[in-house]
């Protein structure tokens, strides 16, 4: 009874590992569905969402906050999908989007560069040097994306509970270790943990509904009590009040909603 996120560099066999883990543990496997859900729910083309969680924001995008909105949409849908537990997620940035949920086993799958090059050469019928450039560019974008949105390096070991290199260790070995780790006490869902995911789902939903017009807000939720943190005191406008009334009516799981203007959001705010 836990949630497993499998992060990987491109062409690093992460998908194969995720599929086998889900099969062995009889868990649901999710990846692209999250983007499809977010696309239909928030009326954003899927390609824009893919770009939002793949490419680093450009100079202008940093001011337009589009990417921030798209990431909030994706996070909202993803957290909603993992509320029911027993899930393996192998899409982009799962370890960051599900940050703060205790029963998430964060796994990183690496493969040595030469093996990745061989996979790309075979798949795209290109030369080794072109394949290498493609992979390196992809890795560079992932690094830039994580740094710009979360201030962290995806290659930083401390972001994951388990990091496995598919080189000397095989896909089957990786599956064994992940299943073994998922079975340990700390990754089991408790009543408290399940409530935490439910609260996070509400907070993410509220954030997704507000982020377009209020990109700098932070939202927390505890047992259905939602707190919205805003930096500027003068930002609590009629527009926000109307929007909050709508959210209250349309979002289930909210008991009480409160805004805190002029207050820095706490570190666990989404």
């Amino acid at each position: 009874m836990s949630i497993i996120t499998i992060s990987r560099g491109s062409y690093s066999m992460g998908k194969a590992v995720a599929m086998q883990v889900a099969q062995r543990l009889n868990y649901r496997l999710i990846s692209r569905e999250v983007l499809l859900d977010a696309s239909s729910h928030f009326h954003v083309p899927e390609i824009k969402l893919i770009k939002a969680i793949h490419d680093a924001p450009g100079i202008l995008e940093r001011y337009r906050h589009n990417k921030q909105s798209y990431v909030a949409y994706i996070r909202s849908v993803l957290v909603e999908r993992v509320v029911d537990d027993n899930v393996v997620y192998h899409g982009l940035a799962g370890h960051l989007l599900l940050k703060g949920i205790p029963q998430v086993l964060k796994v990183r799958i690496n493969a040595d560069l030469e093996r990745r090059v061989a996979v790309v050469m075979e798949r795209d019928k290109i030369s080794a040097s072109d394949a290498r450039i493609l992979i390196q560019e992809d890795d560079k974008q992932r690094r830039k994306w994580t740094r710009s949105l979360y201030g962290q390096d995806p290659w930083d070991t401390s972001l994951y509970d388990l990091s496995i290199c598919i080189h000397k260790l095989s896909i089957e070995n990786a599956v064994d270790y992940i299943c073994q780790a998922a079975d340990t006490r700390r990754f089991q869902s408790t009543e408290k943990n399940i409530q935490k995911v439910k609260d996070m789902s509400v907070a993410c939903r509220v954030k997704a509904d507000l982020v377009d017009e209020f990109p700098n807000i932070g939202v927390t939720c505890e047992y259905g009590n939602v707190l919205i943190y805003m930096k500027g005191k003068d930002q609590v406008t009629g527009k926000l009040t109307k929007k909050l009334n709508l959210i209250r009516e349309n979002t289930s799981g909210i008991y009480h909603l409160e805004t805190h203007a002029g207050v820095e959001p706490p570190p666990d705010a989404v």
């Binding site: 994951y160 388990l162 990091s163 290199c165 073994q180 780790a181």
Partner: peptide, 26 residues
């Protein structure tokens, strides 16, 4: 700190040391 240098990286934040030893020996 670059994780591509290792065959296995285990974070003891959530995983018990005994479990880590078991994984390494396995």
């Amino acid at each position: 700190t670059d994780l591509s240098r290792y065959d296995l990286v285990i974070n003891l934040d959530q995983i018990d040391p005994e479990e880590a030893v078991k994984t390494i020996t396995g």
